[in-house]
């Protein structure tokens, strides 16, 4: 009887703590969000999630050919593109790629020189104000950690489950939805000049013109000769995955380490419990 009550209390307290810990996210994203965001199937979700190299390479292509003309990615270095767990370019490819760009260098002649793999991705604009001026007053946000700076709103009890599933793909889901969320504004919705209607953007009026159109980026067919569809859906999935990698380049090694750590802890806890039982066996307590 006492045992049962204790058990109840234990469960209650565990539940209470879990609930308390969980409360932040609700608030985090409860504000004035756009339409609910649908979850996509990402290769990098879950305990065994890894990035798909080909998808990251395609995403990089979309980023480079479309997004990078307005958006910076200050924290990404060229060398990152050949590091393990990323798009898997070779070092030679990255070196050649970097050489196509120029970066500022106070010690170089004329203050500029061709980039090397150690350099970071050069910004399309010299400063924020220049970026605004070129974009009708809106500042295109930096891409480096954008996939983690956006989240999705989950109603109760979904957000509680998120703690157990480790749902961390809200940013990618949001970016995907946003890129597919351009529509004609509903009747009566006032759009200022230079604004576009987007179903998922908070407030629905976004300063970015629809950046992608079917066929706007030409993918190189894979080794098997089967082409990847050149559609907005595919482009946005690829670039969302790429942005997730850019924000979290060590995700794969982190999850792999984590799996080993958790396995170890469970095993160790089992041994500790057995040892503790043995030790206490002779003591009434």
């Amino acid at each position: 009887m006492i045992g049962a009550i204790d058990m109840f209390k234990t469960k209650f307290i565990i539940a209470a703590v879990a609930a308390m810990v969980g409360l932040t996210t609700v608030s985090a994203q409860a504000a004035e969000a756009g339409a609910p965001i649908e979850r996509q199937n990402w290769s990098f979700a879950g305990i065994f999630g890894t990035y798909d190299e080909h998808q990251l390479q395609r995403g990089f292509q979309v980023f480079r050919e479309v997004c990078a003309s307005c958006h910076s990615a200050d924290l990404m270095a060229f060398r990152n593109l050949s590091e393990p767990g990323g798009p898997g370019f070779s070092e030679a490819q990255v070196k050649a790629l970097a050489a196509e760009y120029e970066v500022e260098d106070a010690t170089a002649e004329g203050g500029r020189r061709p980039a090397i793999p150690a350099d970071r991705w050069p910004s399309p604009f010299a400063n924020d104000q220049e970026a605004r001026d070129a974009n009708g007053g809106s500042l295109p946000p930096d891409f480096s950690v954008l996939a983690k700076a956006r989240g999705v709103t989950d109603p109760f009890p979904t957000w509680v489950f998120n703690y157990f599933t480790g749902y961390q793909e809200g940013g990618a889901d949001y970016i995907y939805a946003l890129l597919n969320g351009y529509h004609e504004a509903p009747e009566g919705f006032e759009l200022a000049p230079g604004q576009y209607y987007n179903e998922y953007f908070p407030g629905n009026a976004i300063g970015m013109a629809p950046p992608l159109a079917d066929g706007s980026v030409t993918y190189v067919p894979g080794e098997d000769g089967v082409g990847v569809p050149e559609t907005v859906e595919q482009y946005s999935a690829d670039v969302s995955a790429f942005m997730m990698w850019m924000a979290e380049p060590h995700l794969v090694s982190r999850k792999q380490t984590g799996f080993v750590v958790l396995l170890f802890l469970v095993l160790f806890a089992g041994l500790m419990y057995a040892t503790k039982r043995k030790l206490w066996a002779g003591i009434e307590h």
Binding site: F264, L267, F268, L271, A274, T275, K278
Partner: peptide, 15 residues
């Protein structure tokens, strides 16, 4: 018992 203690200690040391 000794084996258990040694095993636990060894695993702990690895950790």
């Amino acid at each position: 018992r000794d084996f258990l203690y040694v095993a636990t200690g060894a695993v702990g040391a690895v950790g």
